[in-house]
Nucleic acid binder design. Structure first.
Lengths: 206, 206
DNA sequence: TTACAACTGTAGTGATCGCTACAGGAAAGC
DNA sequence: GCTTTCCTGTAGCGATCACTACAGTTGTAA
């Protein structure tokens, strides 16, 4: 069934164990933050001893960085990008905003953990935080490119401003959803956000 | 000089000690989150023994709740509300947004700690988190009233939506400032946010 | 002077922290 | 069979955790 992966076979339940450890970690970290994520609790939740965790991951920092990485991958996978060539700019921006919103609903861990790490400003940077900021920087560039393409009238400073506002809106709406729960319609709010961005772009273009 | 406060005089450096403890706590909590805030570290930073901390505060939960409370008070104090009767609605909304922005620049701890606590979803609610959510609910109602007053054409559902969007924008822009530091002009972004809200209100009124 | 309330300092409690040493089991290759 | 590699289980390291008991100090009021 599952034959050779690379030259060397994967043994027993190593892959499965790694997955279980990451599942437990994302759960604990989402509840208690970076410092609150204790190896003992993760061990209890995933049913594997601490030594297994330390066999798969160098240390706690490495573990949490791996969680961020996997969560981001899942979020990206949930993001089915809209067709690049369809409809008006307005329709395309709205479409993109809705895609982002549904991806956040499907895979919220990435942004939740990322924001938690971001708000903490400890002297020694956890590598998970650094990783989140890199991903975010990447997203920033992508969105900036999109604005530059859709709104040719914008000067670079305006594109920067608008991009920052766009990402901030996404963060804030996500937080609102985390607080408000089912009472908050994230997709509708992102649609509104797209509208707002469009109007702002028009204002800044003039 | 400082005579009777209530009937009983305040002794020695109790008030001063309480202040130093809270100062140290806000610093530590901002760096390391709720779980990461250890009494030993707070004790070291403020130069007072743990027993003093426990004399002033019931437990760690109580301490952090007090920090949130004081931080909110300071933020409110930094918020010099605009004159209720001056200018067009647009000018008044923009003015308010700028006031909120500068207050956040002057007293950022409140929102930072609040958001950190908000994103954590531990089974047993820390009272600090509850306190933040109450304050936020209060702010929500105030902003909703403002929208209802300035934009009479909005139906209640639209007011709710817009208010959620307004608060989310504030949260997100604050996070952007925390990440971007000096590269982010918070006041300018809040001005943009006011503009966006105005345009959205117009769209939702029609 | 006495009495008391308001703090501070010392010295711990048992529990939990991140992490490690190391023996052993289970599957794959020889 | 034997070895090698992968992974788990047990036990425990020193450090730190939240918190407390309690004696000591000090300003104020009677």
């Amino acid at each position: 069934m599952d034959d050779d992966r690379n030259t060397r076979r994967r043994r027993a339940n190593g892959e499965e164990s790694r997955r279980r450890i990451l599942d437990a970690t994302v759960e604990v970290a989402g509840e208690r933050g970076y410092e609150g994520t204790s190896i003992a609790l993760v061990s209890k939740r995933c049913g594997l001893p601490a030594s297994s965790i330390y066999w798969h991951f160098k240390d706690k920092d490495d573990l949490i960085a791996a969680v961020i990485e996997r969560s981001f991958g899942r979020w990206l996978a949930a993001l089915t990008l809209p067709d690049d060539s369809a409809g008006t700019p307005m329709a395309r921006v709205t479409m993109l905003a809705q895609q982002v919103a549904t991806a956040l609903l499907e895979a919220p861990d990435f942004l939740r953990l990322g924001l938690m790490l971001t708000l903490e400003r400890r002297p020694e940077e956890p590598s998970a935080r650094t990783m989140f900021l890199q991903v975010r920087e990447f997203a920033h560039r992508r969105v900036a490119d999109m604005f530059a393409e859709f709104m040719p009238g914008l000067d670079p400073a305006a594109v920067q401003l608008l991009t920052t506002y766009a990402l901030a809106g996404a963060d804030g709406l996500f937080v609102a959803k985390e607080i408000g729960g089912d009472g908050v319609d994230l997709v509708r709010l992102f649609e509104l956000h797209a509208l707002a961005l469009f109007d702002l772009a028009a204002r800044l273009s003039s």
